[in-house]
Nucleic acid binder design. Sequence first.
DNA 1: TATTGTTATACTCTATAACTATA
DNA 2: TATAGTTATAGAGTATAACAATA
Lengths: 168, 168
Amino acid sequence: MSGDCEAARRGLDDDLGWALGAVLRGYVRAVEQVLAQLPGGTRGLQVLTAAAGPASGNQGAVAGQLGIDRTVMTYLVDDLVTAGLVTREPDPGDRRSRVLVATTAGHRVLDERRRALADVETHILAPLGAEADQLRSLLQRLACAYRSEPLTCSGVEELAAHGHSSTT
Amino acid sequence: MSGDCEAARRGLDDDLGWALGAVLRGYVRAVEQVLAQLPGGTRGLQVLTAAAGPASGNQGAVAGQLGIDRTVMTYLVDDLVTAGLVTREPDPGDRRSRVLVATTAGHRVLDERRRALADVETHILAPLGAEADQLRSLLQRLACAYRSEPLTCSGVEELAAHGHSSTT
DNA sequence: TATTGTTATACTCTATAACTATA
DNA sequence: TATAGTTATAGAGTATAACAATA
């Protein structure tokens, strides 16, 4: 029942924040376990994914796409290279640039972890039963809406300024 | 349209992780703006909420409820006291213990920020229109399910171990 | 001079442990 | 001895800036 749940919510954040946080915490914990052995964790997987793609581009381009700092990228790629999952290939057209390429082992590990993540997603959403797809769809729509309109900075900043400006 | 959205998703995490992350990122950014002036941000609000409650208990009890480390709690309360939102009252029954009490200003700020957060939630979920409540409900159910069964460590750890164990 | 990638430094958070005053 | 709260120290993570090689 939701009795225990009510107790957890009482006096804390508002409903949405609490639920969103709880779900994400659970998801993150599960993903961390799946990616525990992979250097760089989630970001390591992102870089590996980019390196496994057809035209990954150089290190800086990948970093830019993923929103990772260039200096952090260096350490991240270092670890992936050490693990034998990625190599830094010289770019014939620009000798400053290094192109990231996934090794055979990199491709194999990537496939494995992606399958494991898919299983985790299924597992995470299991409590919702048939309505799991509904949640996926709603979240997807919301996320896409943010992309086209980056959270309407105007609106949010207004809300942040005054306490309770325009009600609906 | 979802064209731009597709581009963002391609080659990154799986759908759920990406959508969940994007939504949470947007939410966190908005909340941070709303709580920018409040010492301690989100956790500051949690502590303030507890201090404004009827029987908040001593510092350690509040820290335990909120999952905040005792040492972090000290700094957090220090800042709230400096801001004049909370006071440390001596506990008559135990001179080691300090009871957290929200000041008049603390109550006022708390009410303001809670209203502002409610507005942000409405704003954040606006793209979903009438289906916003559906998302709230689904997330709530999921979060509550995790509370009763803390993400079935057995199941997740199995999934983490092998790459692709039991396909449904 | 600008850019790619690396390295070095500093700052923020958090975690651990030591300390005090009470019990 | 154990507990409530504080303080001090160390670590991970990140950001800033300086650097070498190339354009």
